[in-house]
Design a binder for these strands. Sequence first.
DNA 1: TTTTAAGTAACTCTTTCGTGGTACCGACGA
DNA 2: TCGTCGGTACCACGAAAGAGTTACTTAAAA
Lengths: 210, 210
Amino acid sequence: MSDSAHIIRILSVDDHPLLREGIAAIINSQPDMLLVAAAATGNEAIQKFRELQPDVTLMDLRLPDLSGIDAMIAIRTEFAEARIIMLTTFEGDVEVHRALEAGARAYMLKSMPPKDLVEVIRQVHAGKKRVPPEIAASLAEHLSDEALTGREVDVLRHVAGGNRNRDIAERLFISEETVKVHMKHIMEKLGASDRTQAIAIAVRRGIIQL
Amino acid sequence: MSDSAHIIRILSVDDHPLLREGIAAIINSQPDMLLVAAAATGNEAIQKFRELQPDVTLMDLRLPDLSGIDAMIAIRTEFAEARIIMLTTFEGDVEVHRALEAGARAYMLKSMPPKDLVEVIRQVHAGKKRVPPEIAASLAEHLSDEALTGREVDVLRHVAGGNRNRDIAERLFISEETVKVHMKHIMEKLGASDRTQAIAIAVRRGIIQL
DNA sequence: TTTTAAGTAACTCTTTCGTGGTACCGACGA
DNA sequence: TCGTCGGTACCACGAAAGAGTTACTTAAAA
């Protein structure tokens, strides 16, 4: 309430200059907002945040150096009260989950209309959290799912590379039988009928990238 | 040459409002360019082109109704001399190939710096074609590759869905042996050692989406 | 300390996949 | 008219994958 008369100071982090321009145009058209800086990399974002300590930060997920989530974590260990909005094309429920768990105040899509963006900025600045319904839905869909273990993801990555169980076993220094056990668990957790579908599902959900 | 003194009239087609804003800001900062309209869908693009007949069109690949390539084809059947730049995040060499074959004058990435964008717009307006080196490279890599046939892509999609050969056969009303023959050809053409790798490669190259 | 989760391993058995070869047919172009 | 290409089909064989079961170890959690 006392803030409502103040200008919201915003930091924008995205490696796409075109999109940064768009965000800048939207924000600067709002009388109660000011874009204080823009960063193109995670490290630049951390540094700019330290300098300026903006009220709200818009953070892209994919950055050239570190991931947006890692950059957010770095910022939030220094400034626990930092209010960060993840702004990205949808990457699957796993990324969303990680981002929110790591303290993101909102997770918005780059495809949304500008008026939604400014609205969310105001809400986050006011201390609220916000996740759009379509993202919340995909998040809810997998709430009860067991997450893959690190080893399972390792195996899955090798599977996506077209390796046979025997080859995966060699590379991970385990037996082929163990690989099979991992594959069984992976397919159970993902609800896949075979390794091929497991890849498809894992990619859709953002568990692995191709 | 006679055009060089004139203003370049531009149509921007993209369903992301944020990006449209960015493009608008860039273009309108150029004294020799004018953004005459923006469209968010393929059909809107076709209609706006008819009305305004811009000198250069910036076209996104993914649109809500038809694909950017289909929209371009529709425009170019009416206006064969239309100068269209595909502006997109990289989707794999297959899409690039299709776009250029269908008459795109340039294929640019949304991640590029604004100065490249305006430079390409000027070059395309001057009648030149332009494809950035990284895209040209991935295009060249698969120049000698045989393209998958329509039926092969059908089969591949079903494979990505986790279907067994027998199930695919039933759904496509062919025998399991025929499915195997298609799979053989698919793996040969893609250079994959098994169906799982075939999916991974096909997704990377933009042949199928997950 | 007891329990649980993750990772490892072995064995059997069935199903599916991938490879080889051969062959027919319709459409399209030279 | 003669190839070529795309799509279809069958057969046989060996190589993988997947299902089911049991079991040991380590590390973390209760």
